[in-house]
């Protein structure tokens, strides 16, 4: 307490003495000008305190904003991102297996076509050279009949499988969209962490915290639905979409 009084005496002692002297001497001008100086000095101290308080408040608000964003990221969005990446893993796994299944189905069909053609080819060469027996000619005709039927069916199957292989590559678009979303989240997490480090280092006067850019919502799209992650009603199949549109008169 003594030190407080000492500080006040040091700051204001001479002014009070001047004021008392001016009052005793009846020097109105000196009294008023000294009083102005005293008030001004007091205001300066107040303003400086106020500025410090405002800075602290701003810093606390910034920290709160970073903290709450980080909490949100840590509690909701990072686990969501993990589920999204799991889904990507599942999609790429399924697409790779689907592609290989289809290729494996095509292999024996192509082989059978080639073998049967080769088989007929030998007899056909003898027929062209007019060195074929009538019985062998009959066998050749039967084989050719069977070959034409089988190869048509086999090649239809191969053609269908090729289309399926093409469709299976659609995983790249869907997984790409999900990975892009996770990359955006990682960038946001990085910004929040950098802001936190900057705030904890510098205190008042720190640079303002960058708020995440607001998403422009529906117009831009939400990306593929991920099981267990997306909220809100979604159409889960093309039939759902069709019945919804039919309900709208389309």
């Amino acid at each position: 307490m003594t030190s407080g009084i000492e500080a006040l005496r040091k700051d204001y002692g001479s002014s009070i003495a001047t004021l008392a002297g001016a009052l005793a001497a009846g020097d109105e001008h000196l009294f008023l000008s000294e009083l102005d100086l005293l008030v001004h000095k007091r205001e300066r101290t107040l303003f400086s305190e106020l500025r410090k308080l405002t800075g602290d408040l701003q810093s606390a608000l910034d920290r709160f904003s970073v903290d709450s964003r980080l909490v949100d990221l840590a509690e909701k969005e990072v686990p969501d991102a993990r589920a999204r990446l799991d889904h990507v893993l599942k999609m790429t796994d399924e697409a790779a297996h689907r592609t290989m299944d289809l290729v494996e189905q095509c292999g024996p069909l192509a082989e059978r076509t080639s073998r049967s053609a080769g088989d007929i080819n030998e007899m056909w060469a003898r027929f062209r050279a007019r060195k074929i027996e009538i019985e062998e000619f009959r066998v050749m005709i039967q084989k050719m009949d069977a070959f034409l039927v089988a190869s048509r069916a086999d090649m239809d199957k191969v053609r269908g499988n090729l289309t399926e292989v093409l469709m299976a590559q659609g995983y790249q678009d869907l997984s790409g969209q999900i990975i892009r979303g996770v990359m955006k989240l990682v960038a946001e997490l990085e910004t929040a962490l950098v802001d936190l480090v900057r705030l904890s280092r510098t205190g008042p006067g720190a640079l303002p915290v960058e708020k995440p850019a607001p998403s422009d919502g529906m117009s831009r799209g939400f990306g593929p639905a991920v099981p267990g992650v997306d909220n809100g009603p979604s159409a889960s199949s093309q039939d759902d979409v069709d019945s919804l549109l039919a309900g709208l008169g389309m």
Binding site: M167, F222, S234, V241
Partner: peptide
């Protein structure tokens, strides 16, 4: 598109889309 939320499909219909197919298709 992979966008499959009900409100999106409705929005697209209102904007005048002629058909809507969701991925994977």
């Amino acid at each position: 598109t992979a966008e499959a939320k009900r409100e999106q499909i409705i929005e697209a219909a209102q904007a005048g889309v002629n058909g809507y197919v969701i991925k994977p298709f």
